[in-house]
Design a protein around this nucleic acid. Sequence first.
DNA 1: GGATCAATTGTACAAGTGTACTAGTTTAGT
DNA 2: ACTAAACTAGTACACTTGTACAATTGATCC
Lengths: 221, 221
Amino acid sequence: MRNIRKGTGESRRGKETLLLILDSAKTILIEQGYSKLSMRKVAVGAQISVGNLQYYYPSKNDLLKDMLDHSIDEFMDEFERLRLGANNDPELHLKSIINFIVLDLGNPTTTTFYPELWALANHDEYADKLMDEIYARVRVPLEDSIMRLNPRLDFEQVQKVALFISSSMEGMTMFVGHGKVWNDSIQHMANIATMSFLQLVKNITPDDIQENSFELANHNG
Amino acid sequence: MRNIRKGTGESRRGKETLLLILDSAKTILIEQGYSKLSMRKVAVGAQISVGNLQYYYPSKNDLLKDMLDHSIDEFMDEFERLRLGANNDPELHLKSIINFIVLDLGNPTTTTFYPELWALANHDEYADKLMDEIYARVRVPLEDSIMRLNPRLDFEQVQKVALFISSSMEGMTMFVGHGKVWNDSIQHMANIATMSFLQLVKNITPDDIQENSFELANHNG
DNA sequence: GGATCAATTGTACAAGTGTACTAGTTTAGT
DNA sequence: ACTAAACTAGTACACTTGTACAATTGATCC
């Protein structure tokens, strides 16, 4: 709630409407996509008038910002809980993170919200900055596990392996997410991911990363 | 050009305008996102009148369909060329596919077009069907290589490993794509991907995939 | 029991939207 | 040269959009 009009949403009643608004906006984004998200629809969804909506969020952009913040906080809260209950064994910790993230893709909200965010980030500076922040935070526990499992890597290399693992999991969203063709296989995908990432982390050497590109695209056959 | 009005775009001149239209629409989708894509803007971009645009595409939806078809065909043509020049060695073939796809993510068009498509697929049936078709075709050469590199897997398992590899690469789009924070590391990411996927394909067993989920989320510590 | 400010409503407007429709111009075939 | 079809432009309409604004209700405090 950082983008509301100053001195607003401070009473109990005000806070309730604020949540109704954010919930309505999120629901519309998820069910209909950003192109169908309008102030009027949000107002209807929150069962308030357009004027009242504008009292809280003078512009659509202000609403969008807060909605993104709010939606992402919900995920980060859950993720933080997972971090706190971290296992001392880095391998088990890594496994639990992988399982958590991949299975979370099956959540209907996650399945549709994040692709919207990625598309938005290509044209909206705020969404772009927000994305960087979330995924940087998601990578932290990954980096920690990788570092401990493979001391040969320097931090820059650890970062890149963590980035690979994290982005790799995100990519499954469009295929194993809720309602997607391969949704039934989501647990199998989590298994493959676990096995694959663990082997990667244990066996990768600095040379594997730095290795020069071999020219294949041009002279193959 | 399957969704144009019947008996349209058959003269040389007509075909030219058709391409101008599709190009304009694609440019707007990439530069401004789907929410800003309007018939008027497309007409301006193609330097024709709205009326003329409607002559080719009676409805916005018809235009959208053809635009998606057309944009995807461009990628598939390139990809098909890669397939035809396939190496007999399945390992080299796999490597070349990985390198091609990952490095293609750095293409500005790819970077922004595909996230738009993924978001669209969550709310548009046609985009959803189209996505299934593209990625199924991308998976074919992957499945072929995997099958030859690891005969222990049955076809269903091969499919899942191919799906994992394919979706994994797509996930990098938002991080190493054009203009993204990690774009400089795109070749390193391709290296990690190559190393990781190759090890996965060679070493994975049917048991790794089928394995029951271990319960970690609930009782950790 | 006013005073003060948060919360809510309703209306209004300019700009943009998709699309229907009419009337022209250009092109190609005979 | 005539004709039919392909192509192009322009206008019009009903509807949605974001946002500005005035007016009213509600609650809280001294």
